[in-house]
Amino acid sequence: MTAGPEAAYRRLLRAYPASWRRRHADAVLGTLLDQADAEGRSAVSVADVRDILGHGLLARLHLLLDVVPGRVRAVAGTAALGSGAGLCLALLLLGEWLPPWAPPSTREAGFGPFLTVGPLLYAAWLLAVAASLLRHPRLARSLLGAATLAAVVLPHVVANAYPYAGVERPSSTALAPLAVLGLLVLAAPPSRPSPAVVAATAIGTVAAVGGPMLPLWLSGGSPFPVRDFFYYAYAHHLAVSAAVLLAAGLLAAVAALVARRPAYAGGALLALLPWAVLLLAVWRRISTQGMSALEPLVVVAGVGAALAVLGGLRALGVRVRL
């Protein structure tokens, strides 16, 4: 074997993080060279390039995720799975579905009986929860990956316009927390999620998000408010929803600390992130409407939630490498 493939393989192995290379690079290099010899190659194969680059990048991603311990991520992932189901259910039934008493003007544009393409995303999430509970982790991961990607990409590819025409998407105010929830689940997909935790977080989120929407949905006044819920005057209701969820999460974290379950406490704190994001998203929307009275409250709550997450993780002895 010439020095050619060895030097090339060494360069390729730089795809892995330095700490991984210190532990494994020489052993992997030996295996790569043995395999090249056995296959009669004196050059790096395309399959090796793809394999090493892919696994190297995954190793770097894991290093990033390992900032938070696996147990904490697993608890946050399970809570986020349930919370996402609650958010999707509330948005699907109360934010998107037009009831029979909706005025005809609200049906000018839409997606079947729904206002936007959002139900596709919500349905993917709800199916992912079912797949996860029925122990089909790969299917659950695929569906969650698709839903998360859609939540990130939709605001950039579909521009909602007034007057309503063509295909619309849900407001980015609703998609932002959903994207964060998706990332939390994908960071630690629970292989055996606790149905009790999933159900409790789902019910809590349906109540917190759906509560303020229900009277509006039932009233069906003109202009029918649900379409505008995330865009205009009702955004402050979502600030209340986010505040309720942040408070509930903080209480759950304190209860877990009292019960000496630090991983649960850390997980509960980490699972607050989407609701802090929702608060910030609502703040952004309210600011553009000149409703700045809520700004200080939203900023304080958002910063407080972020500090609570960081402080809680630090108290638990979580390593933070920046």
Binding site: A27, V28, G30, T31, L32, D34, Q35, A38, A47, D48, D51, I52, G54, H55, G56
Partner: peptide
């Protein structure tokens, strides 16, 4: 060792599973 595992797996699976080092 690493390559011996790759070779054994390929042999056992009759060439169907060909693991790469990564």
């Amino acid at each position: 060792h690493g390559y011996a595992v790759i070779a054994e797996v390929a042999q056992m699976s009759q060439g169907r599973v060909r693991l790469r080092a990564g």
